[in-house]
Every structure is written in structure tokens, then in C-alpha cells.
Design a protein around this nucleic acid. Structure first.
Length: 301
RNA sequence: CGCGGGGUGGAGCAAUAGGUAGCUUGCCGGGCUCAUAACCCGGAGGUUGGAGGUUCGAGUCCUUCCCCCGCAA
């Protein structure tokens, strides 16, 4: 099939690589415009753009793809595939290719429609997640489901590992789904919209840790998103932790005991890796060598 | 020219108003012990990121360069 691939962040890299290696032909790659990145605000290419160029694929970036109907039609593609592209398509675009537009979404739709499916699944303590390939329609991640595959969320998983696994899985599932579409033996099922949930973009503030919650909840937050707290006014990012106890009820939540074990509202959480303001990432042990925090409280100022 | 914080023995941190560079840990040697990620004694290891300058004297003040990081995007 002749494919137009639309994607932006690194999550879309594996799908692009696999599709490019398959017998299908990628006739164009579309990515978001370059955005200012980094400390100096330099303009950096999106991961997908960078990869596409290195693969010598025709690459395009549009401020608004809705104005590019004529161009998109001229590509004469069989199907458009979006993986975390980041722009809303119009009905006219959806109608352009023979097989329409399909999208790979990193959740078990209809749950976790929206911007942060992976983070939200970890955050909510889900036991499993997965990839859903759906026929794109105008609604947000609401199209009919073409295929879906699950994977478990392990305690050892973090946003990085899950991101990786799901990216790989999406590449895999996209290929299988293309195959079915091509052979005409694919069928799609409408989502049960009553069960739909949405997740929004992750904001900085969502990373603020609340140790009055349970150790499990804090643990999940640390695994899911950039989390931080304060000790004596010192801003400190918490990178890794381990649940020591899930049941013990504590009144003095936030109190730091030996070995950087923190009392949570329910349970004990051991901090294992941190990144203090202006420092490099370090193990809790290293941090403790230079900072005596026993008996102090961790939390909002 | 987005805002801001740092570079001190291998590692993590200190050093009142410029005046002998310390602490914790690690490493080496020795001791104690049935034993120890325990304890005791001793030791090595720094031209305080680089280069200039001010000063009787600079980790500490000034200029400049290099590197690292947080926030914001």
C-alpha cells in the first residue's frame, strides 16, 4: 500500500522504521513544525522529521494540515497512518485516501482517550494497557476499533519502559492491521462510548508529590511523570523509589527516616534516586552523604 | 540575545567580614572480633574548571573563556 505517515515524537519512530522496512511504500512523511527546544530555545527538528530525512523519505511540516488538501490528494496514497501526530484532521482529509486514516493509540480504547494515555494508566495503577488501532474520525480517539493488543503493567515498568514496549507493539500491530485491511478481511467495532475516559496533557504541577497519599499512589506518580518535592525549601526531583510497606497508617506523613525512607499517609516509600536543584542525578545514598535529612519533612516547602 | 543556579581530594557536601582547605563516604595499611555494610588506629589522594587582574595574602572580590544543571518553552 502507498502510505502517508503522520507523526511527531519519538513514540512514532519504531512504527515509521517498521513500515519503511515492510513491503509497503511510504510516499510522504508529515510531522509538526520545528519547535523551540532546549535551554537556549534552539529550533530542533522533531524526532520523526529527523528519522524521515535520514531514511531519505519525502518530509513535510505544516502549520496547519487542513490547508494542504490539494497536496495530500496529489500524493495519491491508499492510506494515512497517524501515530502521535498532534494535529486534528478535517473530514476532507479523512476522506482522501481509499482506506481512510488509521491511528495507533497507546491505550485500551475507549479508556484513556487523549494526550497522556501511558502516563495516566500508570498513574491510576492500571494492571494492563495496550495499543489500539482505530479508524480515525473527527472525534478525539473515538473511531471504530480495528485491532487491539494488551500488555501488562509491571511494578518494574516506568514511563520509559512502557513507552518503549508500546511503541514496539504499535509498530507490530500496525503491520498486522494493514495486512488485514489489504486482504479485505478486516472488520471494525464501534467503541462503547459509555466507557470512555479522557486524559489531559500532563502539566508541571501534576508532578508535585503528596506524601499524605498512599505509598502506592506516590510510587505510581514517580513512575509515571516527572515528580518533585521540597526539603527545607530545596527543590528536588524524585526519580526512582521502592515501596517498603503498603499498609502502615502514618499521621506524620512526609517524615524522612533512615535510608531515605519516607512515611506516607499509608505505607512507607524508599527514595532511591534523586535530582536536586542544579545537581546531577544521584542515588539516595550519595545525596545523604552531603545532606542530613533524617527527621526532616519532605513536602510542599 | 527567555529566567536562574553551580563547577572544591574517586563520590556527595562544608568553609563566619578575603588570612594555615574541612566533613561524610570510598580507597590503601594495621588492630579488635566467632563474625560484620560493626568498631578503633594510621595513610594516600586537592596547583579549589581554565586564563588574566586587585591584594602583604584569593575557594572567597573583578574581567574573560570552557563545562554542567533547574525552570520556562
Amino acid at each position: 500500500m502507498k502510505i502517508v505517515f503522520l507523526g511527531t515524537p519519538s513514540f512514532a519512530l519504531k512504527p515509521l522504521i517498521e513500515l519503511n522496512n515492510s513491503r509497503h511504500k511510504i510516499v510522504a512523511v508529515v510531522s509538526q513544525p520545528d519547535r523551540a527546544k532546549g535551554r537556549k530555545g534552539n529550533l530542533l527538528p522533531t524526532p520523526v522529521k529527523e528519522l524521515a530525512l535520514s531514511l531519505n523519505l519525502p518530509t513535510h511540516q505544516f502549520e496547519s494540515i487542513k490547508n494542504q488538501i490539494a497536496f495530500l490528494k496529489s500524493l495519491n496514497a491508499d492510506i494515512f497512518i497517524t501515530v502521535a501526530y498532534g494535529q486534528i484532521l478535517s473530514q476532507e482529509i479523512l476522506n482522501t485516501p481509499k482506506f481512510g486514516v488509521i491511528n495507533a493509540h497507546a491505550s485500551l480504547l475507549p479508556k484513556y482517550r487523549g494526550a497522556s494515555p501511558i502516563q495516566s494508566a500508570i498513574l491510576n495503577g492500571e494492571k494492563e494497557t495496550g495499543i489500539t488501532i482505530m479508524q480515525t474520525e473527527l472525534g478525539l480517539d473515538s473511531g471504530n476499533i480495528l485491532s487491539q493488543e494488551k500488555i501488562p503493567i509491571l511494578d518494574s515498568d516506568t514511563i520509559e519502559t512502557l513507552f518503549d514496549k508500546l511503541s514496539t507493539l504499535s509498530a507490530d500491530l500496525l503491520l498486522k492491521t494493514l495486512c488485514k485491511l489489504e486482504n479485505g478481511n478486516s472488520f471494525s467495532v464501534p467503541q462503547d462510548h459509555m466507557l470512555a475516559t479522557k486524559c489531559s496533557l500532563i502539566t508541571k504541577e501534576m508532578g508535585s508529590l503528596d506524601f499524605s497519599k498512599s505509598a502506592r499512589q506516590v510510587f505510581n506518580q514517580i513512575r509515571a511523570i516527572n515528580s518533585y518535592s521540597h526539603i527545607d525549601g530545596l527543590y528536588i526531583r524524585i526519580l526512582d523509589s521502592e515501596i517498603i510497606n503498603e499498609h502502615q497508617i502514618n499521621k506524620d506523613a512526609g517524615l524522612i527516616e533512615n535510608d531515605f525512607i519516607v512515611k506516607c499517609g499509608q505505607g512507607l516509600l524508599k527514595i532511591k534516586q534523586v535530582l536536586p536543584m542544579n545537581k546531577k542525578r544521584m542515588t539516595a545514598k550519595q545525596f545523604l552523604l552531603g545532606n542530613d535529612v533524617r527527621g526532616k519533612k519532605i513536602g510542599t516547602n
